[in-house]
């Protein structure tokens, strides 16, 4: 396989990067400025249509929807980021260890991942939050468990391929222990795969957080959350349908951006993809 001489930035990377930066920027901005206080209740101004004063209207308690969306970005990103961090912290070491020491430990990691994959992710999350009680922290754990399984499996697969390569065997022969070889040779070579997978899991985590919050199991009020805004708006679907459109669109934009970013990163890091031409 010959690498192309020069590669330009993949378009999906650019588009995804811009969308993701936009969402992150809005989330950061909400820390210092929102048009209104997002948790400020004004019952008499409830369910206002979009207009001057409230660019996206108000919700059923008279809260400013734009401000809530901005603050909601922060909460959605925070939960998703934490869930990915949990996945990375648990899944990557497990995957690396499993690949470094084939045997029952390896088998246990593989079976453990199989076990988690055997349950539909939504169901796992519902069961876990039923066990732990609803809340942001528990949503992080429920989504993080799924992420850990995915990352463990992906890391293990990629690391095993690296272990088969000559230079790693040579390093082992030269007296490096499996731990050292993992840190020096394996981890840098699987980092790309992990970054791509983590980006896509970030997007999935946002969708899962939205689903949990929609069911009332995620971020708890009064902190605004996209999923709960959608759940709340659903009861006003026939009077204020736009209320259901805005948070749904916000979720879609964030997920779209992250997915494009993940695809772009993969194109960048794995030249086999995206370089194809139909003859």
């Amino acid at each position: 396989m010959t690498a192309p001489p020069r590669r330009s930035w993949p378009p999906s990377l650019v588009a995804g990067g811009v969308l993701t930066l936009l969402v992150v920027a809005v989330a950061l901005l909400s820390l210092v400025w929102t048009p209104h206080e997002p948790e400020r209740v004004r019952v008499l101004a409830r369910l206002r249509p979009p207009g001057p004063g409230h660019w996206l209207g108000t919700d059923h308690f008279g809260r400013d929807v734009l401000s809530m969306l901005m603050a909601g970005a922060r909460h959605s990103l925070a939960v998703a980021a934490a869930a990915v961090a949990v996945g990375l912290a648990v899944g990557v070491p497990l995957g690396l260890a499993a690949a470094a020491r084939p045997g029952w430990g390896d088998e246990a990691v593989a079976r453990g991942a199989d076990l988690l994959f055997a349950f539909p992710a939504v169901l796992t999350a519902i069961l876990l939050t039923a066990l732990l009680g609803p809340g942001a922290l528990n949503a992080v754990l429920a989504i993080g468990a799924f992420n850990a399984a995915v990352l463990a499996r992906v890391t293990r697969g990629a690391a095993r391929q690296v272990w088969r390569r000559e230079f790693v065997r040579a390093a082992l022969a030269l007296g490096r222990g499996p731990g050292g070889a993992t840190l020096v040779h394996v981890l840098p070579n699987v980092a790309g795969v992990i970054v791509v997978q983590a980006t896509i899991l970030f997007a999935v985590a946002i969708l899962n957080e939205a689903a949990l919050s929609y069911l009332g199991l995620g971020v708890q009020p009064p902190a605004p959350s996209w999923g709960r805004m959608l759940g709340d708006a659903q009861t006003h679907l026939f009077t204020s349908p736009l209320q259901a459109v805005f948070p749904g669109a916000a979720i879609a934009v964030a997920v779209l951006g992250l997915n494009l970013l993940g695809d772009g990163l993969r194109d960048l890091l794995d030249p086999r993809h995206g370089a194809a031409r139909v003859t």
């Binding site: 929609y214 999923g227 659903q234 679907l237 026939f238 749904g248 879609a252 779209l256 997915n259």
Partner: peptide
């Protein structure tokens, strides 16, 4: 493909009800 993955499934279902049922 990208949109289909990014749109929350329950949201899409709600929109279908709004259009085709109501």
């Amino acid at each position: 493909g990208q949109l289909g993955i990014a749109v929350p499934g329950f949201w899409f279902a709600i929109l279908l009800i709004l259009v085709f049922a109501v």
